[in-house]
Design a protein around this nucleic acid. Sequence first.
RNA 1: GUGGUCAUAGCUCAGUCGGUUAGAGCGUCGGAUUGUGGUUCCGAAGGUCGCGGGUUCGAGCCCCGUUUUCCACC
Length: 376
Amino acid sequence: MNFTLEHTCAGSRARAGVLATGHGEVRTPIFMPVGTAASVKGVFHRDLADEVRAQIILANTYHLYLRPGVEVLEEAGGVHRFSSWQGPVLTDSGGFQVFSLAGVRKITEEGCRFASHIDGSKHLFTPESVVDTQRSIGADVMMAFDECPPGDSPRDYAARSLDLTHRWLERCFGRFAATTPKYGHSQALFPIVQGCTYPDLRARSAEFVQQFGAEGYAIGGLAVGEPAPVMYEMIELVNGILPADKPRYLMGVGTPVNLLEAIDRGVDMFDCVMPTRNGRNGMLFTSEGVINIRNEKWRNDFSPIDPAGCCFVDTVYTKAYLRHLAISGEMLAAQIASLHNLAFYLRLVETAREKILDGTFPAWKEQTIQKLSRRL
RNA sequence: GUGGUCAUAGCUCAGUCGGUUAGAGCGUCGGAUUGUGGUUCCGAAGGUCGCGGGUUCGAGCCCCGUUUUCCACC
């Protein structure tokens, strides 16, 4: 994997770059649609590539480990062949899912024991097992196994958690160095900076994670309840310490406004469930602002979903029809909304990249944020 | 026709011994959702308790009449 920093922008820390992977190039800044179970819910790969113009998607070690399981993935020849998605794939390690989805869990020095959210069966994730599983999945970018403490963790808990995450990180890279890819393409391992909202912990973590010579870095544990300005401060602080010549991935973020603010502070990669999950529940991000398509006011609105939209559903379907589908619980509603929202997100970061390259990002950002914040 | 039975929110139903402002689920309307369980959570609107009389300090509840639902018998 190779990252080329193409351009930075005066009056901002925003960057444009190219991330070269074994499954093609990714132009940054980039948003990665979330495809938890090796599926971006409700969206065909064809549409993901042609309409959304996604360049890389995210899948989950936790989910794929539980279903279909490592054995099936290995027999299939990895997640690319299994799913037929031929672009790059990044897998989350399961650290976050173990803490947000699984049932009873116990964290020890060894790793984390947890109960499956599917059938309650007991499992153990360790830094080593999680690297092994991601080797079997064949992700282009693997993530380190971390603990994601609650956003309101007291300082002593945050500090202990961070030390554990750092010890786990050493073990992740130990296993990473001792193993090789299984399917002929290279795999990178990104460490994750933690530290909650404590500046000294964040700084310590951003220093610590650099000792492994990783090919990219992630910022985790944000957008977990803290105010947005605090999140921006943490991003600024961490990005001031991380190496400039490697990609930076802000995990799990965020709203369109969050993306622009983070890009402005030097973030290159994002993922978030918001465009798909919120889309399934009727929330649409459009060039005019945010709309809840279930609202009664769209009942007789036969205008296109988004006249300025960039994918086919935006002009083929009307708001009234999409509202009808959403209210009726039709699966097509979820498909249309997911496709639209993802296309909107990808167009947003694509435009941000253009503005960085031509040096007009700061002004464009301010003016775009005004529009994106509107509720229609 | 006779005897019984039912009627409470848009729908399906609770409602204690007759006692404060008649409740729930679903639906409707609005809000939330940030490394995804097509999830979950929060809030609001919505009632002449079939109708008309009566008893009582007080009736969704008791009595009479009437209409309606369903059942049995003729």
